[in-house]
Design a protein around this nucleic acid. Sequence first.
DNA 1: AGCACGCCGACT
DNA 2: GTCGGCGTGCTC
Length: 833
Amino acid sequence: MPNTNHHIPDRNSSRPDGEDNCRSLETVEVAVALPVFGTYTYRVPDPLRRFAAAGCRVLVPFGRRRVTGFILGSGQTTDGREIKPILDVLDELPLFPESMIAFFRWTADYYVHPLGEVIKCALPGGLNRRDRTVAALTEDGRRALSGTAATGREKAILRLLSEKDRSLRELTAAPLKPEITAAACRALADCGWLILKTELSGGRIGPKRERYVSAVSGVSRAELTRQRAKIMGVLDTAGEIPLKQLTVAVPTTLATVGALERSGHLVRTYKTVYRDPFGEAVTPDTAPILNAEQDAAVNRILQALGGGFATYLLAGVTGSGKTEVYMRLAAEVIRRGLAVLILIPEIALITQMERRFRARFGEQVAVLHSGLNAGERYDQWIRILRGEVAIAIGARSAIFAPFANLGLLVVDEEHDASYKQEGSLRYNARDLSVVRAKLANTVALLGSATPSMESCHNAVTHKFQEVTLDRRVERRPLPEITVIDLRLSRDQRGVHRYITPQLREAMEMTLQHGEQVLLFLNRRGFATFPVCAACGEAVRCKHCDITLTFHQQRNLYRCHYCGFSLAAADGCDRCGSLKIKHLGMGTEKVEAGVGKLFPQARVARMDRDTTARRGALVQLLKDLRRHRIDILVGTQMVAKGHDFPGITLVGIICADLSLSFPDFRAGERTFQLLAQVSGRAGRGERPGRVILQTYNPDHFSILAAREQDFRTFYAKEIPHRRALNYPPFARMIHIKIAGKDRDLTATHARFIGDTCRQLCRQHFRQPPAVDVMGPIEAALPRVAGRYRWQILLKGSDSARLHRLAEMLVLGQPAVFGKREVHVALDVDPFSML
DNA sequence: AGCACGCCGACT
DNA sequence: GTCGGCGTGCTC
């Protein structure tokens, strides 16, 4: 039977008085969903008063528009200013608990981001309602289109509108003719050729309503046809069922059902249902017996539960059974009537974790990630909000899950860069989890085999409590890692250059034993450095300062930064030669080479190119598990937390790629990546081994990865961080400046740098200092046609750093107000490319 | 964000 | 002289 939607009883819309003391607010404080700092006070008209509560969305007048806002609480008295009334309350019940408002405020403050935008970002998408201006052609306008009164430019606008009405935003959007401006449209409206009307748009996402049918008893069925009698028979046994289910049971038309309704035999009703994001059902499991180490870890953290705020760092080697620790703690938290939030870096791993949790905890689990469609996401949110689930598992955005009674926050693979949101609100969900735990006065648990430098430092300085799992479950040994010096095979040609004899031998042995091999190379495509053999010119991107990557499968050169591509058949851009040398290797080349070396083996590839299609990744993982694949070649995607029981050999093709990144975290990332991918070996019955090929066999990141010991790495890395005053000793805010005009962007970058230095001189006369570094050109000076500059603010006093950022955002409108140059702040940056 | 206000160059 | 370009400021 297909997965049917769960039925939810509809709530009684008349709320008992006194249920919530907020519901008598005369004025409310509202954060609007716009890039506006500060909040606003609105009056609540009498008829809306019983609906207005903290956490509800409202429609408010703002300037001459209507926008969505969020009620934060009761309003402040404004000094004699006009107070406008709210126009509508958009939610019957609050969309988030009042307790989360302090968390939203903290987030907005820390990341120097407008509060309303933070809340909008936190909520499931598709809820925002706002006015938009729509242009429609008038009769006069239609005539002007064929007449001579209108100029060419005016006719271009009118022609667009002759097809259909269009919003002003759509008309003035960049890809459409740049000469279309809002002002020009307004001028046409003054001529009477078009009219501009205001429409309320958005907010389409909401509960799903499904049609149900049920029989009415006591109506004579003597006259019914056989078909209709059969329908009634089904309803008699099934009771109230979804209409969809009825039409499956009895192939029938809606007209027949309608006729039966009119004759009074059945009634149709609507019910709110949840859209179900879960795949196949899972079989329940029972908790396994913990080993002594796991048991000790669980007990230590159990003692902290209920004792207020604390952060625990669970440093457990790969395969040490961290998930089981999370599940034991979750069980206890749930037993106490509290909720558990679990953050996982990637969707593929969420699915794995979600299945394990559903096997243990059944229906009490919700998921939140970008793989859900808008409706599913909304429903999962509502289930959490109503307290119908006790566990939510999700990606970084799930840090905003609307629990009012959190008892534990878990961040798995806490070192993972995926917790850092890039884009407009650049938050780090791992850091926010500690903040949220503090505000909820509860425990945050950060788990990793390769903890970040920041978390290690917090453990060393006793801000975090460290709990370790040093051994794998069932006494499985950690894989033995052999380091191979790639410099020795520099003279080799073709595949032998990157598959050394040692790796090849190990692969042969593994395949002979019927075991699986994982080959890791952190670069996709076939060749990463295509060069014309005739003129020596590299194949470059038109819009970025970077060489393109050759993709054999699609026979084209592609830019991994902006998506630009060139057909391989066209040859060299400069001299037209068709002879292009494919230097630099990616996973595609490794896959091809390995296929030739082991023609009898089944080789598959796992990278962004092969997993882009929905469901492709899950299929790949399934094939691997069922041993339909002998050798899997992949990028960092294979390094992350997966449990591959059949893999006994991991080959790291070239360990150095991430080491050469121009970033102070390059060493840390390299260590984490190598230790993690090594951890994929020997997770089943048979022990694993790793062949690690590198040009830098003596680099401490690589040596530490060989030991699979984050403490070794930490001890070596920390002096560098201290010497250069990098995190964890200092905090940083990264200012990114980008624009299409080279000179304008550079000039503006210098202006911002000068402004920062001036503010520092004015406000921070005494130490501790805030260093303003730059502006310098970004490591990739041009991406997608935009010139990029950056300024780094660095200081050990986080409060000062933030004051500077705030002064920039609030007190220096010229910095951010330039139309041609985009300026963004990145607090605690992860990647500084 | 989006809209109005206000200040400067190039046109009827 | 004005039209319309864009920097600046404001939205309860």
